[in-house]
Amino acid sequence: MKKEDVKFQEIFSRYKGDREELIPILQDTQAIYGYLTDPAMCAIARFLRVPQSQVYGVSTFFAQFYFTRRGKHAIKVCLGTACHVKGAGRLMEAFEREMGIGCGCITDDYSFSLERVNCVGACAIAPVVMVGEDVYGHVESKRVKEVLETYADKT
């Protein structure tokens, strides 16, 4: 078994197997794999005795969960209201143009994914972009290249 799979099996040992543990278990699972795989969701369904379809129904309902592999660096462009009025829409377009992918997509080499978020709570420095845990404030379109280059080397 892969190291991740061992960790995944360990998750169950921390829970009783009740339905209300579904979302916490999904969160723990995503923390290991970065996204939710079909086999993982099926295993969770079996552990919790919840129909598989409902595990998927719940997972897809919440914005937190992903179903495909993520890029190494997740670029999150904040599209909260404050950022929106300060031009986050154009900023997103700039990222899309620069990265050559649409919002919600991943670059072919899995180095970057581009996502939108609804407010990271840093409205005062809008527009805001998060890369992983790093926060960039007052990002103008022309800084997009620079931000990306910072991480390009780290892949």
Partner: peptide, 11 residues
């Protein structure tokens, strides 16, 4: 807190 543009609760 889900309102995009509000972060009082978080603070």
């Amino acid at each position: 807190e889900g309102d995009p543009g509000a972060f009082m609760d978080r603070s």
